[in-house]
């Protein structure tokens, strides 16, 4: 232990001083935070009277947790959200197992099936489940819906766009370049605003679309443009020999890409894909600007409750921790992907 300390913190006199100063700074900065968040904090109760005011009032969060997680989803139906989450987790789990990747068709099929099943569970209106309109969706559940649908839609679309951008057909290439650069060049907030209030102006009179659906379309197209650029990076890294070999085997354009080029290209860019996914997950918060209540929107709405005024810090910290937990675990998962032996190395030779 002392040996470790000496090597890590005190390799030399200058470093030693720096370490001591840093330690002091950490203690000075973190002590009040720890005290506020844990030691003096109030955890249990139902009203603001249960908070002493000395530290954080987590009662605010625990009293509202139902809304934060499920939004205005009817209380008697919330089990459906839980089941959907479980089913989604089970459906997606094989994507993260090395062995399962030997049969990608099956794995992606399973994931797709899980998505459809989840959607049916959440919307209802069939199998004796009461219909729950999307305007009652909210909180973490809505955040996850936007993120998952956005990822599921933008991934294949992004691959198609990337292939289109590398196509030899000038018209197709031009269109894909224009599409990608257009979406990447504008802020998501203007895209969402357009999707939320201007889309109906573009559609023929009487045609209608759910507000959430419109937001989902906006988010998916936006993310697809970013995904396309990541995938293009992977495609560029594939040596020409691979294309020639695939061609020599008699594989056509689509089969050579599906069986030879894409599996290699995608492996190269796993970190980029995960980064895009994390970005998308964080960007879901912007839907609050167009009046959908995601986790952050729900927290903000709760902050204006006259009974709980003045607990904005607790609310934002809670939302921050939730988002952090999701994004951080995703980035760790991607590290595991990168480090897995055999993946990513076998095809560079």
């Amino acid at each position: 232990m002392t040996g470790w300390l000496r090597v890590r913190l005190f390799p030399g006199p200058v470093n030693g001083v720096v370490s001591v100063l840093l330690l002091a700074a950490i203690v000075w900065a973190m002590a009040p935070v720890v005290d506020w968040a844990f030691i003096s904090a109030d955890w249990f109760g139902t009203t603001r009277a249960d908070c002493s005011g000395a530290g954080a009032c987590w009662v605010f969060v625990t009293a509202r947790i139902g809304q934060f997680l499920y939004g205005f989803y009817p209380e008697t139906e919330r089990w459906r959200v839980d089941v959907a989450a479980l089913c989604l987790a089970l459906g997606l789990a094989p994507l993260f197992m090395a062995r399962a990747m030997r049969g990608p068709g099956l794995v992606f099929g399973l994931a797709f099936g899980a998505l459809v099943l989840c959607g049916m569970l959440l919307i209802g209106g069939a199998f004796g489940l009461p219909y729950v309109p999307t305007r009652r969706w909210g909180g973490l559940m809505l955040t996850l819906v936007v993120a998952v649908v956005g990822i599921a839609a933008s991934f294949p679309l992004g691959i198609l766009l990337a292939l289109g951008r590398r196509s030899r057909l000038p018209v197709l290439r031009g269109l894909c370049v224009a599409f990608i650069e257009l979406w990447r060049g504008v802020p998501l907030i203007t895209v969402l605003f357009m999707a939320s209030v201007m889309l109906p102006l573009f559609l023929p009179g009487g045609a209608e679309m759910d507000k959430l659906l419109r937001a989902l379309i906006g988010v998916s197209l936006f993310a697809a443009a970013y995904m396309a650029e990541v995938v293009r990076g992977g495609l560029q890294a594939i040596p020409v020999g691979q294309y020639e070999a695939a061609s020599a085997l008699g594989l056509g354009y689509w089969r050579s890409h599906a069986l030879v080029i894409l599996p290699q290209a995608l492996r190269h860019v796993v970190p980029g894909i995960v980064n895009t996914i994390i970005g998308l997950f964080k960007d879901t918060t912007l839907v609050l600007v167009i009046g959908l209540f995601d986790l952050l929107g729900m927290v903000q709405a709760a902050l204006t409750d006259p009974n709980w005024l003045g607990y904005s810090l607790e609310g934002y910290v809670f939302a921050g921790v939730m988002f952090w937990a999701f994004c951080f675990s995703m980035s760790r998962l991607s590290l595991r992907f990168e480090r897995r032996p055999g993946v990513g190395q076998e095809d560079t030779a």
């Binding site: 994390i278 964080k282 960007d283 879901t284 918060t285 912007l286 609050l288 952050l296 903000q300 934002y316 939302a319 921050g320 988002f323 952090w324 994004c327 951080f328 980035s331």
Partner: peptide, 13 residues
């Protein structure tokens, strides 16, 4: 790891 894993909008708020 803290800053880049929390949505920007939340940080602005």
């Amino acid at each position: 790891e803290t800053l880049r894993n929390i949505p920007l909008l939340l940080q602005i708020f």
